[in-house]
Design a protein around this nucleic acid. Structure first.
Length: 230
DNA sequence: CCAGACGTTGTT
DNA sequence: GTCTGG
DNA sequence: CCAGACGTTGTT
DNA sequence: GTCTGG
């Protein structure tokens, strides 16, 4: 699945890859977690692509409490167009979440060993996402998002049976196109990446703690953990 | 019709 | 075990 | 995703 | 809000 990821590439490179209107300065992220702000690419009414920071964990418009978003961190691409919690966002509020790596875990509870997964040697990629706007009883606005998942490829399957739905750059425009799109047109865009395009590397358990967000998250794990695993 | 739900994932 | 918070 | 908490009562 | 179940 996709419950933690990285975005280290500099702002201008992100802007270039996703064809954004504005360049931007941003700090590299080594440990982006649910409940935190996430950078997402959306198309505005004129079709121009903008970067926005949305809360990760989709809060549906009808929710009485923003906390329901805590569990809506991923959506299955196979069923997302039919699920009540996601259907309207799927019809008209699709987004792309820039990333340059994501984490999966192995090992027993209490000693979870993270593995960092890169695509094509650390290149930027875009994860298919949806977003929602929610207004609280006190009138405050919250924009939130959810990341789509698909079957894991054979390289990742030993860790998990799901992986993020990573869009091919030539499908970004279709995914972001405003207006209603038939699910059958969009569904083929959401498939596992070929095994050869991903590389896995065990990293420091430091990443387990959401308050650590620094390069040391990607350090090699302590020796014993490495031996246990590979 | 009204009432009630609305989601995914991990784990041995 | 299960939920919340980050 | 993982880590960490998880509760009620009386009292001023 | 919108769909499902009764």
């Amino acid at each position: 699945m996709c419950g933690r990821f990285t975005l280290r590439r500099p702002g201008p490179e992100i802007a270039e890859h996703f064809d954004l209107e504005a360049l931007l300065a941003r700090e590299p992220r080594y440990n982006i977690a649910p409940g935190q702000p996430v950078a997402v690419v959306r198309a505005d009414a004129a079709g121009a692509r903008q970067l926005a920071e949305l809360h990760w964990g989709l809060v549906p418009a009808w929710a009485e409490d923003a906390r329901v978003g805590g569990r809506l961190v991923n959506a299955r691409s196979e069923t997302v167009s039919e699920r009540r919690a996601f259907a309207s966002a799927f019809r008209s509020r699709r987004c792309i979440v820039p990333a340059d790596g994501f984490y999966e875990w192995t090992g027993r509870a209490g000693a979870r060993q993270p593995v960092h997964i890169e695509v094509r040697g650390g290149a930027l990629f875009g994860i298919a996402g949806l977003w929602e706007a929610w207004r609280g009883p006190d009138g405050r606005e919250l924009e939130s998002c959810v990341l789509l998942t698909t079957d894991a490829n054979a390289a990742i399957r030993p860790l998990h049976d799901r992986m993020p739905a990573i869009l091919s750059p030539d499908t970004y425009a279709d995914w972001l196109a405003l207006g209603e799109q038939a699910a059958e047109i969009l569904a083929p865009l959401l498939h596992p990446l070929p095994d050869a395009e991903v590389s896995l590397r065990p990293v420091s358990p430091r990443v387990n703690h959401v308050d650590f967000d620094d390069p040391a998250c990607l350090d090699p794990p302590p020796e014993p953990a490495q031996r246990e695993l590979f």
